[in-house]
Design a protein around this nucleic acid. Structure first.
Length: 606
DNA sequence: GCCGTTTTCGGCCCGACTGTTTTCAGTCG
């Protein structure tokens, strides 16, 4: 194992990934002769950024086995972990206008443009660069017309013009709006959202729309798209594609037109991810095929072999197609080659919700209102009301007396409705030392116990949460990392340690489906699934509308390659009872201080 | 730089759009 001089948190991965990203930019600046080093460091940066655990935990052999990381970059990583610096980074920094490299990340700026300006105007800082741009010095250079300078200025403005990435939930709604808008255009045969939205990434930068139409209708559709009421600005406008920024919200929408015959290949191309496509196209080439948005072709005679459907591209290669959520080049192509693509969980597999708040704490509705809503709108077999416990004062958490009262009320409600639909439960607070704020005596009387951290976000919470896992009555850890996308980073937590502890103690981990939480996120859920930890998708509902978030949780589970068997709330309640009993019998779980009333449960093998 | 159904050399996805030319390089997704 590489010397651990750094902290164990993922911060180290981010720092190293940033260094590699900067090195890739420096190679990009140097020019075409370093084009492939640029690509190599760009890829290495991305790989390190998405590692599930700290790079310090990997042995040199494990590092070298990572995709896109070979002998040389392994040595560089080792140098960084041991000394904290990279000699080649320092060397490159002297050779390139380091302060200006970020400019290459602005739309319309590439290395050649930057190099010409740097060499003829001798600018060194970003400020000097902008001044040269605005003063008109730059458009005196050969090859820099007024149009290009204006595009550059716009590029700088655009840097701030488009707001931050959208939450997936908001992007899904916006995508539907744009889709309806395009569908209303004469000549449009089919519309579909592609890109990261179709892959259901947790946040979305811009919205990619694909439209099928006849060639003779292209011009009128492009005109419709670029001159609509909610268009803020047109970025690009050609015969087959156009990009706009909406006036509100200020989000970019890219449109691509295609004939119906090319629908499948275009949808595959436009869905990506970039990495998935590059990998697939490289393999296709090695097998004598060429893939583009126009189909799959034989390299030897140029004959088109398919492309009307997405499956054409994969099956012509002898591969198996996989759902869009898997297309991130994280090993899915190997499964595709081997015909071992998993059958991912679907929304319809979900049998209940194990994380629901009522007006007994900070939810808005009574248990009865929740029951009626779910029986009308959802095909669930059970739900658990899991209100907060007393330490969550802001959420009006329940004390012991209220918990027992609520149990009575829920049992009476089930009886009145003639069902056994609502289970009793709680979201119990994990205190700073890992103890719970409700006794085991009370917890043992509930059907389901979520445990969660709601305080001391500035501490390392690994040991605290693991201790909660060791309680025999804790069924699941809710929103395990505590992050709120765009508002609050995850607290310090060794996620691998937690996943190992969950496995050891038989505790489930939650995929919290709230749009700003999505916690566990896809990579962590993937690691937990691989290690055999059971996952729960909980909506953490506080209103009746919140139950719709289940769709988001299922998206994460699919991005983590989960099958129904990996998700506890796609199983029957009997099977959930078996899961609980297995935990209570587990020798790694501290002995319960009260005896548990046992009943005869049967386990139904799937 | 990486990688291997092209495996230790030689290739590395592929096509649309823009600006400035006048046939294409640079850039983007």
């Amino acid at each position: 194992m590489i010397t651990k001089i750094m902290s164990l948190s993922l911060d180290e991965n981010n720092k190293l990934a940033d260094l590699f990203r900067e090195m890739s930019l420096m190679y990009k600046y140097i020019g075409v002769q370093e084009r492939f080093r640029f690509l190599a460091f760009q890829k290495a940066s991305r790989v390190i950024k998405t590692l599930p655990q700290s790079i310090c935990n990997y042995s040199p052999e494990q590092i070298k086995a990572l995709p896109g990381i070979g002998e040389s970059i392994t040595r560089t990583i080792k140098e960084y972990l041991v000394s904290g610096t990279i000699k080649r980074f320092e060397h490159l920094r002297k050779k390139t206008p380091y302060q200006l490299l970020e400019i290459m990340e602005v739309k319309g700026f590439g290395p050649e443009t930057l190099k010409k300006i740097v060499s003829s105007l001798k600018v060194r800082t970003r400020q000097e660069f902008v001044e040269a741009l605005q003063s008109g010095k730059i458009n005196k250079l050969p090859g820099f017309g007024a149009g290009k300078v204006e595009a550059m200025l716009r590029g700088f403005k655009l840097y701030k013009e488009v707001e931050d990435r959208m939450l997936l939930w908001d992007a899904l709604a916006l995508g539907e709006k744009v889709k309806a808008w395009l569908k209303a255009c004469p000549g449009v045969i089919k519309v579909e959202a592609a890109g990261s939205l179709r892959r259901r990434k947790e946040t979305i930068g811009d919205i990619d729309m694909l439209v099928a139409c006849k060639e003779e209708h292209r011009a009128q559709i492009i005109k419709y798209f670029t001159s609509g009421d909610f268009v803020g600005r047109v970025i690009l406008k050609g015969d087959q594609r156009a990009s706009i920024v909406l006036s509100d919200p200020k989000k970019q929408v890219d449109l691509r037109l295609i004939t119906e015959n090319n629908w499948g290949s275009a949808l595959q191309y436009f869905t990506g991810s970039r990495e998935h496509n590059i990998h697939l196209r490289t393999i296709a080439r090695s097998k004598g095929f060429k893939i583009s948005e126009y189909g799959i072709f034989s390299l030897s005679n140029g004959k088109r072999l398919g492309g009307a459907t997405e499956a054409d591209l994969y099956t012509t290669l002898g591969f198996q197609i996989m759902p869009p959520e898997m297309r991130e080049d994280k090993g899915e192509i190997l499964h595709s080659q081997n015909h071992t693509v998993p059958s991912l969980i679907n929304l319809t597999d979900i049998k209940g919700d194990l994380h629901v708040h009522s007006n007994w704490s900070d939810g808005l509705c009574t248990p009865e209102e929740i029951l009626l809503h779910l029986q009308r709108r959802f095909n669930y077999n059970y739900i658990v009301i899991t209100d907060h416990s007393k330490s969550s004062r802001i959420a009006r958490g329940m004390d012991e007396k209220q918990i027992l009262q609520q149990v009575k009320i829920i049992k009476a409600l089930n009886k009145k409705m003639g069902v056994n639909f609502i289970k009793t439960g709680i979201e119990v607070d994990i205190l700073q030392d890992g103890q719970l704020d409700i006794s085991n005596e009370i917890l043992s009387q509930l059907d389901w116990v979520n445990a969660a951290v709601h305080s001391h976000f500035d501490k390392d919470n690994t040991d605290r949460i693991i201790r909660a896992c060791e309680n025999p009555f804790v069924c699941c850890i809710s929103h395990p990392t505590g992050r709120l996308i765009g508002h609050r980073d995850a607290y310090k937590l060794d996620i691998t340690e937690l996943i190992n502890a969950a496995k050891r103690t038989g505790t489930a981990l939650e995929i919290n489906a709230q749009p700003t939480r999505m916690d566990l996120k896809d990579d962590f859920a993937m690691e937990a699934r691989r290690k055999g930890v059971m996952l729960v998708i909980g909506t953490d509902s506080h209103t009746l509308q919140d139950f719709n978030f289940m769709e988001l949780g299922v998206s994460i589970a699919r991005r983590a390659w989960c099958k129904p068997g990996n998700i506890l709330n796609s199983l029957s309640w009997d099977e959930i009872e078996t899961f609980k009993l297995q935990k209570q019998k587990n020798k790694d779980v501290k002995n319960a201080s009260v005896s548990v009333k046992k009943e005869n449960y049967t386990f139904h093998e799937k």
